[in-house]
Design a protein around this nucleic acid. Structure first.
Lengths: 250, 250
DNA sequence: TGCTTATGAATGATTATGATTGATTTTGGA
DNA sequence: TCCAAAATCAATCATAATCATTCATAAGCA
């Protein structure tokens, strides 16, 4: 087994079980204890795990890491389907705004090889974008510790330096009377500004957000195109300027 | 077997297995190890795969890849000592600029409980700052994938919205004639701008940077206070406006 | 033939590995 | 609580695998 393979194996195992014992890894990999020890030290230096006496645990992260944290979430597969579908709207060479959030995060693997320029206010998206080799700009601003989103006056201001062909937003609720809403007014302001700088805006939401209302209003429903998955799995609804269109699955 | 054929064969094999060992390819192709090595080097240059010790993996799919936040630096302990010492200059309530880089990164644990506002252009610093509960602002700009530093016109512009009590920079070399230098002109520009917005600027460098000259000049030596560790371990030199002061260890 | 390119073997350097040592930490019973 | 046994640990060493480099040969082509 290759060194690199073993590292991957350990990380995968750790993600599954949350906690691993050195002796277990030794048995499963048929490598010596010394080697596994070295692996763990190495991976700890890379901040992929934290060592504890007798084994290792997942690293304590302050910023929400969508890739890891959400794996257990119920609607992950739905989000991925939704993200994949929405990625189809992106044209080769587009300038794209990607909102901070888990759904937009899932779009990233589907944006490769499109020669894009992506601007985002989501710290958690950056590493994944880099991995895809996508030219990435980050807005400035204050960091919201829990979510890793950039918000505030500086964010708004730095956004004004860009124009987007296409803009993807996540929301916490959408409602015919109250429009798109999200809990944080600061984030709402950022989303609104980004949208206003884009030729076309798509709001991604799974069906659980339907008719939900949150504290801060972003904008009215008809100001963006809503992409929402159907409960009946493999179709999506695209509500464009109050027009309903049914589409087959991506 | 033709060279091109062999290349295709390797890529196909890699696609199937995700990870391949050089020895396996040697057996399957009946070519010599040298040839396979050359093939892999070639294919890596074309970004078709990534080499790892003993074989190759698909590009980007390397779970255990060292992240930018890798702690396993060369002279880590020296850097920590230097960082700890420099942290002493920070006053309670200061607004601080922290340059992207490993030395400034090491300052973070010593900045806690000082009620600071920190601005940085280093993505790798953000999580550590959050862990310390420090209010953190990020400059905007383009992300340099390798280092996680923000650079470019947007970075410069967003800096102009701030004023700093104190500014800490890392450099790649300092020299009496050529001043402070760093390889990337973009980064140099950011450092210079940050410094010009601060009441006081400190440059952190370990002794290995002494009399080194890199491509892009940041500014002259006397425009900042240089903090450098001595080879003889436990002392630091603080060169302030060409005045030399020896100080005991932090 | 003369030229370029691809190949394979040999080298010394680098890196990964497994076993051993003595120190440190945890555990469990008095 | 304290102590001793067991488990785990970091550090070191020798070995083995892998690596980049060099050089000589073979194959392809004008």
């Amino acid at each position: 087994m290759l060194t690199n393979e073993r590292h991957d194996f350990i990380l995968k195992l750790l993600e599954e079980k949350q906690t691993i014992k050195i002796q277990d890894i030794v048995e499963l990999t048929a490598a010596s204890e010394s080697t596994i020890r070295r692996d763990l030290t190495e991976l700890e230096n890379r901040q992929k795990l934290e060592r504890v006496f007798g084994g290792a645990v997942l690293p304590g992260r302050n910023l929400a890491e969508p890739s890891v944290a959400d794996k257990s979430a119920q609607n992950l597969q739905e989000k991925i389907n939704l993200a994949k579908f929405a990625s189809g709207f992106v044209q080769h060479g587009d300038s794209v705004f990607l909102d901070a959030g888990t759904t937009t995060f899932q779009m990233i693997p589907f944006l490769t090889e499109k020669d894009l320029v992506v601007v985002t206010n989501g710290l958690t998206l950056v590493e994944a974008l880099n991995e895809q080799g996508i030219t990435t700009y980050l807005t400035g601003g204050m960091i919201k510790p829990r979510t890793g989103a950039l918000v505030g006056a500086q964010t708004i201001q730095s956004l004004k330096n860009y124009r987007f062909d296409i803009c993807f937003l996540g929301v916490n609720g959408f409602h015919p009377d109250y429009g798109y809403t999200t809990p944080d007014p600061e984030e709402a302001a950022v989303k609104k500004m980004a949208s206003s700088l884009a030729r076309k805006t798509y709001v991604l939401a799974d069906h659980s957000k339907s008719n939900k209302v949150s504290f801060a209003k972003i904008m009215d429903l008809e100001e963006a195109t809503l992409v929402v998955d159907e409960l009946s799995a493999d179709t999506f609804e695209v509500l464009e300027k109050k027009t309903t269109v049914k589409v087959g699955k991506a």
